[in-house]
Design a protein around this nucleic acid. Structure first.
Lengths: 136, 136
DNA sequence: TTCAAATTTGTAATTATTTCAATTCTATGA
DNA sequence: TCATAGAATTGAAATAATTACAAATTTGAA
């Protein structure tokens, strides 16, 4: 398991430090689209000296190497995502959780003014849990 | 023109102060998806005392009353938009400008776990101007 | 005209992120 | 094995967007 993650990093030309492996492990085990803050809270227990700067550096590196994706939502924080298959996101405006949804068929943009390299699709609304339990 | 904007505000139950009318005018005349920073720079000349807090308050109010929309892009800043017809956005990763694009036909999400109230679609890439003039 | 309520303002606080220099770690070659 | 250069990490400070909030100003109705 650990070896596996190390190998993934090495395959991308990233030397597998304790911090990097931990962050990658967190990302692959938690598909919750965490922010730097959340990751820091979660990993500080096992690596007390882990700094946010390292997490920022690491996630930026992972992103550049194509290991993870990132996006911002209307909380103005960057969320990271280790699921690299193209998908859409649903954000519950109540509990703020972000869920994956399949990316729908999209007609191509007929406009030569724009060279499109990436498409992001966000749904906003209320999740079933909040619908059922927080009726106020 | 001015009367017009005042009336729009009044129709939404918003009293048309100088600041609010100016901000609404800026939004209707500039479809550039400005940030608070940009609006502040632009209007400070004519209203030197205009504070960012007022701009934040006003845009939040306009948004709540359905006069404008807002979204964030990967610059982690909130952009405001007075074009209220549903459309998509293209952001040029070079010049950072944001353009409107028609919102494509989308298949309905078949998932009772989510009640969807809003959909946002962003394209990222390079605009024609940057393609032609900044080839580096 | 008066005054309460609404609005605006400026400052300070908060939050996310970046910068950067100092420290720590690690792999390599003597 | 040991020294050491380069890589990685750290923490503190700087920056940027936003919010909180109390004081000052403006406004509209009585």
């Amino acid at each position: 398991m650990n070896l596996n993650l190390s190998d993934i990093l090495k395959a991308k030309g990233i030397s597998p430090s304790v911090q990097r492996v931990s962050i990658l492990r967190y990302m692959t085990e938690h598909h919750t689209h965490p922010t730097v803050e959340i990751i820091h809270e979660a990993l500080s227990t096992s690596i007390p000296t882990l700094s946010k700067t390292t997490i920022y550096n690491t996630l930026t590196l992972f992103s550049q190497k194509g290991l993870i994706d990132s996006f911002v939502t209307d909380d103005n924080a960057t969320h990271y995502d280790a699921v690299m298959t193209h998908h859409a996101h649903f954000k519950c405006v109540r509990c703020k959780r972000i869920f994956d949804l399949p990316f729908p068929e999209l007609e191509k943009v007929e406009n030569s003014d724009f060279e499109i390299n990436d498409i992001k699709l966000f749904y906003y609304g209320t999740c079933r849990f909040c619908k059922e339990h927080l009726n106020n």
